[in-house]
Design a protein around this nucleic acid. Structure first.
Lengths: 127, 127
DNA sequence: TCCAATATTGTAATGATTACATTTTTATAT
DNA sequence: ATATAAAAATGTAATCATTACAATATTGGA
């Protein structure tokens, strides 16, 4: 998969990518670092930043900035929307809605981010 | 307007609100500070943060987090979308699109943010 | 006018991200 | 296998927006 995106595979790149594939929870840099560092004793946070930057530039992952201080990463790069639960904080992938927009003359739109906020099913049941 | 939102009017609150009403450019905290501090010599950045927090909590303004490090503020609190020009960086208010979404069972949606990215009319003409 | 509540101010702390110099690893040619 | 040059990883220090907090100032009502 790395090679398909023109990225030279290294141990660190492979592990970060594997983590993202296995954990579709939109982890932060720190989530990834905390998860991987016990197995990779010399792993550095900076490396995670570097790897994610490389992966994002090649289009292998996508970053999402939803309502908070730190950036999250998503292995799913197809067009989709995100839902953030304001109770538990989890971020879910949702289908992109059909949108009918009247873009004023002259605006050239390239892409769209859609973020929903509310309560997720699990938290809704708890109340 | 402040009183309508249950906020005690102070010089600082009034000036920040006036600035937002007069500058619909989605300014950052720093934009506001740089603009107002020459006229209010003792003005503090912290005050701007405090004022904006108060204004946002009362629903008088809305904050937007679009693709960057610092938060922007918008006096227009009605439901609308935002367009960010990737060339000049300006943020524009746009009409909220008609959206037809299939929200999976159990998700309780409260509000939605829609962000467009692309080239604004002015920058499109320049090229 | 006085007093208590509230707001403002300035400094210091926080915390995510980046810059950068050093070390390590990798791929290739010898 | 060895040497070498390019690329990647590492760790420390810097940056910068935001927040915490304590001190000072302002406000509105008794």
């Amino acid at each position: 998969m790395l090679e398909r995106h023109g990225i030279r595979p290294s141990v660190q790149r492979t592990e970060v990518l594997k983590y993202l594939i296995g954990h579709r929870t939109h982890p932060t840099v720190d989530d990834i670092y905390v998860a991987l560092s016990p197995k990779m004793l010399t792993l550095s946070r900076t490396t995670i930043y570097n790897v994610l930057k490389t992966l994002e530039e090649s289009g292998a992952v996508r970053s999402i900035v939803i309502d908070e201080k730190n950036v999250r990463y998503d292995i799913c790069v197809e067009d989709h929307a995100h839902f953030k639960c304001r109770r538990c904080g989890k971020v879910f992938d949702l289908e992109m809605p059909q949108m009918e927009m009247k873009l004023p003359k002259g605006f050239e739109m390239e892409n769209t981010d859609v973020y929903y906020y509310g309560i997720c099913p699990e938290c809704a049941l708890k109340q």
